[in-house]
Design a protein around this nucleic acid. Structure first.
Lengths: 194, 194
DNA sequence: GTAATTTCTTAAACTAGGTTAAGGATAAAA
DNA sequence: TTTTATCCTTAACCTAGTTTAAGAAATTAC
């Protein structure tokens, strides 16, 4: 049934024949990841592309002072990987960790490239995926420059409405680039305003 | 001779036959852009991919208060486009402007897709290009969170050594996300240190 | 069901970076 | 060559966000 979710995801883009299904399914490996379990450790190369069936992940970097900075979340029906490391084959500077106990489907680089050859339309999905992530990042750069933390928090709540209820505030603060203490202050100010 | 620069760029990746050359060359249009001339205006869709033969460009967004924020520079032998707008066909929120009088080669979306079909290996170059820009952006998000403005300035000088001598400090400040006044302060502090 | 860990909040002191305003230096234009 | 526009710097004051520390609330583990 986990693999049903994956096929359903693909079906949003185009129909899939029985032959195609037979090519896709065996190449994805189902895994259960405990809360706080890591599927990518900084220093390692990101060798798999991960589809989240259930649960939730965060991808983050650690700075010189040991502080963690979230750069992306992924919940049900979303994909996560350090694209930079996955495509270049170089070691990643990021970590990917489960925020909740999760169920994922993973595919290796070799198998993914095999599917790209066999099922040409899959290229489009993954091209669209990276384009979306690119746009998201570009918006973040601009937003970080031009908005206050309060505005960025409100934007985050709106953009990730479902997700934001499941995330501890400390993870949201890390995504926004502020301290949990300051997020607390923002939340109180907003509550006072109405 | 402008188109020689373009072919030379491609030759860094793979050999090009006379037939391929004949497909590529006529699809790029040579243009001269004056200093401060715009090749993309926010609100318009980004319809061309631009190769910089000579000169230098900046891509920037304008925030609510009218402040400009540079998100990318491109000089000789680099490519520039609002990838988000170019690939989705939606209006861009960014501007691309010449910092110096420049010479460019531009290709339309239709022609680029035609070349992608005819010369398959071109796909690779443009995939690599977008991957590089993605990695650059990801690093910027992390760096903006974890480094002081001074460190970001030093990193910028190192990463874009050649370019940084040609750019007015005001443009560098806009890229770093700080005011020109504060950049001045940083520069003085660095000079005092030695 | 109690202990242990993680998360959230408050508040006071602090700092990186912004704002305003003004003068000097370069470079472009005429 | 003079004028005009752009760029760079300085300094005094201001503010958004950090730091430190400590307690309350909520989860998780045993």
């Amino acid at each position: 049934m986990a693999k049903e979710a994956l096929l359903k995801f693909f079906l949003n883009y185009f129909p899939i024949s029985a032959e195609e299904k037979a090519l896709i399914e065996p190449r994805f490996e189902l895994k259960f990841i405990n809360k706080k379990g890591k599927i990518l450790q900084a220093g390692d190369t990101c060798k798999v592309y991960t589809f989240v069936v259930s649960g939730c992940f965060r991808m983050y970097g650690v700075d010189d002072k040991g502080f963690e900075h979230n750069i992306q979340f992924a919940a049900e029906n979303d994909w996560i990987a350090d694209i930079a490391s996955f495509y270049t084959g170089k070691p990643s500077s990021l970590n990917i960790e489960a925020i909740e106990s999760s169920e994922v489907l993973q595919i290796s680089q070799t198998d993914l490239y095999f599917l790209f050859e066999e099922i040409y339309k899959l290229n489009r999905i993954f091209k669209v995926t990276i384009e979306q992530k690119y746009i998201e990042l570009q918006n973040r750069v601009l937003q970080n420059f031009s908005s206050t933390a309060e505005q960025r928090y409100l934007d985050f709540l709106e953009q990730y409405r479902i997700l934001s209820n499941r995330l501890p505030n400390t993870q949201i603060a890390s995504y926004l680039g502020i301290t949990p203490e300051f997020l607390s202050k923002i939340r109180r100010n907003l509550a006072e305003k109405g």
